[in-house]
Structure formats: C-alpha cells, structure tokens
Amino acid sequence: MTTADLHTLTGAYAVHALPDGEREEFERHIADCPACAQEVRELTATATRLALAVSVAPPPQMREAVLRRIGTVRQEPPAVARQERRGAAGLLGGARRLPRYVLAACLAGVVALGGVAVWQHQSADDARQRADRVEQQAAELSRVLAAPDAATATRKLDGGTTATVVVSRSLGKAAFLAAGMPTPAAGKTYELWFDDAGTMRPAGLMDPDATDQALVLDGRIENASGVGVTVEPAGGSQRPTSAPVAVVTFPEAAGV
C-alpha cells in the first residue's frame, strides 16, 4: 500500500473498520505522520459525539407521567400572530445555541414516547438536566480525544469486542471506548479500574445496556499503567470480585 493510500484511511481507522493487517500498517504510518494522527483524533471525537447522540434514553417513568396527565391538562389557546413569531424565533434561537448531539438526544427521547408531544414541567426539567450531564460528559471526552498529546491503544477481545484507550498525560485523564461489548448477566455491570502496578483502583461504571460506548475514566491517571474491566454486581464494587475480562495497557504519549 502506498503512502498516498494510507493518508485516506483516517476515517476507517477512527471507527475501527480496518482489517488487522491494514490497521497495523496504518498505525506505523501515523507514528510518523502528525497530520494523519491529528485527523484521527478529530474524527474519533466526532464519532464519539455521534454515538452519544443516541445513547441517552428518557427515564421509563416519563412516558407514564405524560400519559397520566394528558386528560387533566388543558390545551393552550391559540396565540396571536406576534406571539407566534416571537415563540418561533425563541425556539429557533435556542436550537442554534444547543449542540447538535444534545438536540438529537432530546429528539430521541420524544420518539421513544411513541410520538406523544405533551411535556410537563417536571419532565422537561429532568430532560434538561440529563441533557446537561450528557453535554458535560461529551465535552470532557472531546478534550481528552483532541488533546495534542493524546495517544491511542486498541485491543481486540474475545467475542469480537474492540477496546480502545485514549490517554492524555498533560490532562492526567484517559478515555475508554468499547465496540461490541456483550450484555452482562442480569444484575451485573462492567466496572473500569486503573491498574496501579497490579492494584486496581475504581475508575467508573459502564452502561450494561450499551454495546458501544465511550467515557472518560473517573479520577486521574497518576501512576496507572493501564485500565482493566471486570464484571461486578450492579452499582459496582470497591475492589474487583472477578477476573478481568480485559486489560489494556496505556500507550506512551504521542510523539514519544
């Protein structure tokens, strides 16, 4: 494969779509190509934002609350033309201010309600709080993925799962991205751990219902050499109660 061909593989590499041989060749290429390395970081951040756009579901009780109150809430009277114009401008202005992935999350919530378009005050507050949390998580994830010293390591696990860690030592943070994670048994969840010379330090919980996800590990890297994943009881554990299903060693800083 020519160097020109390798320059075109940044997108496929960012979404883990390269076969093993091409992936290894491309990884050797980006070690000496800062432009492609930067493009991979940016494309990975974008792909993560798109994934997060569909990863947020409304709480189950929201549908029940809306349907319960439909018969008791009076319909608003038609607004006059001026109010309609002002209302439309306000909605459009709000849409311009919100990031695309937050809007997508809100729309996904509406679709999940079966087309019901009645939003009560408390439900709307809950949705806004969830959207704010998603926005904060996505912003933190993007900082790690787009950091100038971000370094990436990918490992194929049993069953076809792909696990990727992205480390920024200047930020002291690491992100974990998984594709094709099998669903754990009922009452179980995946827990992440910093590997501190063989001692596991809690680093956050994964969503047991999501096969593809990306999140920033809780806490700072400090002296950790990698990240481990174990299956734990719902809610997590203070110490691992099972053997790791995966351990991914942190890569060296970009450019090292």
Results as ranks from 00 to 15, higher is better:
Gly198Glu: 12
Val231Phe: 08
Leu92Pro: 04
Ala47Val: 02
Pro59His: 05
Ala139Gln: 12
Cys36Thr: 01
Leu103Gly: 07
Ala214Thr: 01
Thr189Glu: 12
Ala95Arg: 13
Asp209Leu: 09
Ala105Val: 05
Gly114Val: 08
Ala253Cys: 05
Leu103Tyr: 00
Gln38Pro: 00
Glu252Ile: 04
Val165Thr: 09
Pro19Asn: 10
Pro148Asp: 06
Thr3Phe: 07
Val15Cys: 04
Gly21Tyr: 02
Ala254Arg: 12
Ala146Trp: 03
Gln238Trp: 09
Glu39Ser: 11
Glu64Ile: 11
Gly180Trp: 08
Thr161Asn: 00
Thr46Cys: 09
Ser168Ile: 01
Asp20Glu: 15
Gln137His: 14
Thr10Gln: 12
Val245Pro: 04
Ala81Gln: 13
Asp149Gln: 03
Ala179Gln: 14
Val116Gln: 15
Ala108Lys: 08
Val245Glu: 08
Pro202Gln: 11
Ala138Trp: 01
Leu43Trp: 03
Val15Gln: 06
Ala210Gly: 01
Ala243Asp: 14
Pro251Tyr: 03
Thr189Pro: 03
Val227Ile: 13
Tyr101Lys: 06
Lys173Glu: 07
Arg85Pro: 00
Asp196Gly: 03
Val166Tyr: 01
Gln120Leu: 15
His121Pro: 09
Val165Pro: 02
Ala89Ile: 09
Cys33Ala: 14
Ala31His: 12
Asp20Gly: 11
Pro19Met: 06
Leu6Ala: 06
Gly159Tyr: 09
Thr189Ala: 15
Pro77Thr: 07
Leu6Asp: 04
Leu43Met: 09
Thr241Val: 12
Pro251Asp: 04
Arg74Lys: 14
Gly71Asp: 08
His121Ser: 15
Leu98Val: 02
Cys106Val: 14
Arg97Met: 10
Ser168Leu: 00
Pro208Cys: 10
Cys33Trp: 08
